Simulated assay, not measured.
Amino acid sequence: MTSALRVVVLAGGVGGSKFTLGVRAALLRRAAPPATVVINTGDDLWLSGVRLQPDVDSVVYALAGVNDTQRGWGRTGDTERVNHELQAWGSGWPWFTLGDLDLGTHLARTGWLREGLTPTQVLARMSQRWPLGANLLPMTDSEVDTWVVLEDGSRLHFQEWWTRHRATLVPLSFENPGISSAVPAPGVTDAIARADIVLIAPSNPVVSIGPILAVPGVREALRATAARIVGVSPIIGGRVVRGMADVCLTAIGVETSAVGVASHYAARSAGGVLDAWLLAEEDAASAPIVAGLGIHPVVAPLWMTDADTTADIVDAALSAAADLRA
């Protein structure tokens, strides 16, 4: 590995934001340039007149060191006076909390969007406030919110299904209206084409990574790049690390296991997007099965307990890519 190492990360959700911290730390160890992080925007929404981008904000706040690590979302030390006032007016969702500092972000974003800036330009402007140590891009500038189709045929916005109902309503499928006509945000496919390594974060494969891969042109760019593509399993010992990814996987017919997710992404040699796959030590026995899928298996500790341990995970992924190149 050289200092010219070019890394692209596909990420979303809290798992993705934690992983980006590890990527930044690992690249600093190697004196490598900052990674380009392509962030899921499939769970964005309009609420109380402002545009929310939960995954974008999670990554920005984490890299800035201002995220609330206890709740797992929003700003640390935030208050909720405006949120209470909105609820008193019957505005918004009473079960969806908007912190005051968080609302400042949403208001700034919405104002810039109303002025004509694209989401890519808005994110570039947001990135100027703090030294983030990464180049951030939305997956697309199009609005492609995620909707959940339930057993009775009704549809809910993903945030209502996830936050209000805690994924207890059985989903039949997930939809991103308009995604078939979306295009990758400026810089996304170029970054993938120029990359040495593409990392798929241990984010929810269905609603965090899935929308990124569904943007027309992204899968094609991944299949065409000379970079090695290494994914990190979000499943450890047959269990999800965080959230309700198992419900999402079941809905699309994928087993909740490291092998199941690896098979879902599939090997590039078989038309998928993976060259290598990091499995947890708890899943070491599955390595031969992953190899049988045409994907190089790497067993490593995968618990992201802090930035240093997460950097070790990233180091394992970077080493796997180097081994494949050699």
Rank of each mutant, 00 (worst) to 15 (best):
T310C: 12
R166F: 10
G49I: 10
T110A: 05
E115S: 14
P131H: 12
P34E: 12
V38Q: 06
S233C: 13
A307Y: 04
I313A: 01
L324T: 10
W161A: 07
N176H: 15
L10K: 04
S208T: 07
D100A: 11
G72T: 06
D246T: 08
W277D: 04
V60P: 00
A285P: 04
T110L: 05
R164V: 14
D315M: 12
E282H: 13
D190F: 00
A182P: 00
G116Y: 10
E282Q: 15
V215D: 04
R75V: 14
G237Y: 13
G210K: 07
R109P: 06
N83A: 10
H165M: 06
A62P: 03
S142V: 00
D315G: 08
I200K: 11
A4P: 00
E281N: 06
C248H: 15
V59P: 03
E255I: 07
A88L: 13
L98S: 14
H165R: 12
L123W: 11
G13Q: 05
N83C: 09
A291K: 12
T310H: 09
V207S: 10
A26I: 05
G72D: 07
H296D: 12
A185Y: 01
I289N: 00
D312K: 11
R29F: 06
A307P: 02
A31N: 13
P34G: 09
E143N: 09
M139G: 06
D196Y: 11
V232F: 02
L63R: 02
S208M: 05
A300G: 01
H157S: 09
H157V: 00
C248Q: 15
T20I: 08
A11R: 03
I295H: 04
V148F: 09
I229T: 15
V122Y: 05
W89C: 12
W46I: 01
S319F: 05
A31Q: 13
G92V: 08
P119S: 07
L21T: 05
G210H: 03
L52I: 14
G260W: 06
E151D: 15
T225E: 03
L150H: 12
R29A: 08
L101N: 13
R114N: 13
S127K: 08
W46T: 08
I209N: 01
F174S: 03
S180I: 01
N204T: 06
M139S: 07
A267W: 04
T69A: 13
G13L: 02
S154C: 00
V37F: 10
S48K: 08
A185F: 07
L169F: 11
A284S: 05
I236S: 08
